[in-house]
Design a protein around this nucleic acid. Structure first.
Lengths: 148, 148
DNA sequence: CGGTAATGTATTTGTATCAGATACATTAAC
DNA sequence: GTTAATGTATCTGATACAAATACATTACCG
């Protein structure tokens, strides 16, 4: 079972940005296909990072940023931490071996650079871009179904 | 416990490329800091991809590619599969919801593009580059210890 | 003021993944 | 033929993630 908090977060944010009405954690859970508790757990991360606002007892969660100003990188970092750590280096290389002694510090910069490129790519797109594509997809689907 | 096969593979390949003598899975396990069975499991993947050659009963594993011609991407793909799948999309979005219905196909291209950038970065460096840095690190360590 | 409904959060459980460990068949070398 | 190595299967323990449950806290509404 691998971590899906990121795409769940995107899903939640798209819903909040596009829904005309207030959505509670139960509504979101239904759309995402999970349970409300998990939704609230992911939302807590988004809230900690100032992306959304919500209140105990009060239904409705507000998006605090304009979709154009919310990059996919910012969302990723909110749910998975600031440093994108894709690669895990093995823990116990032998310090008595010349290779084992230095492998971590030597390999790290190569992997870090790759992760930096990944970050840059995520920074280039925003929640608004996702929403735009979603609208296109919905139109295409509708067009397709009407011609059937 | 996250997957460390990739850096273990790099470690193994550095050892094979730089060691003047034959290394068996036990030697490698000691340097990596794990057990020989796991080393052989990772080596099986490298062998499947034509990166190394080995034989039952016969000690010594050969590197089939020149370190300059073996990119870090190729190593990654050998142990983790050809498509780099960093991001997992949640499995059960609600098809009855306009967002849930399309979220997968819409989000995928954004994530895929980011993964493509990651691949490109990995493709830019080779095993030889890692070995070069390792030699530098070893020299620096030695220099440092002599001046102490 | 009391009841309802929502969030926020802790805890437990089920499950998947990874690496460690063990075992053993197969094969090469001597 | 014995020894030692690889190749591979299987079991176990640890860890991580999400599902599920529970409940305190708080806002809203009568």
């Amino acid at each position: 079972m691998r971590d899906t908090k990121y795409t769940v977060a995107i899903h939640i944010l798209v819903m909040l940005a596009t829904s005309p009405r207030d959505l509670n954690s139960d509504d979101l859970a239904r759309s995402v296909g999970t349970n409300a508790s998990y939704i609230r757990k992911v939302m807590a991360l988004l809230k900690d990072h100032g992306i959304i606002a919500s209140q105990r007892g009060k239904s409705g969660t507000r998006l605090l940023k304009r979709p154009e100003a919310l990059s996919l990188l910012e969302i990723y970092q909110a749910v998975n931490g600031d440093d994108v750590e894709i690669f895990q280096i093995h823990q116990n290389p032998n310090p008595a071996c010349p290779v084992g002694k230095n492998i971590k510090q030597v390999v790290f910069p190569f992997l870090d650079e790759a992760e930096r490129q990944l970050k840059e790519a995520l920074a280039k797109n925003s929640l608004a871009d996702v929403i735009d594509r979603l609208k296109q997809a919905a139109e295409d689907t509708d067009a397709g179904s009407t011609t059937d």
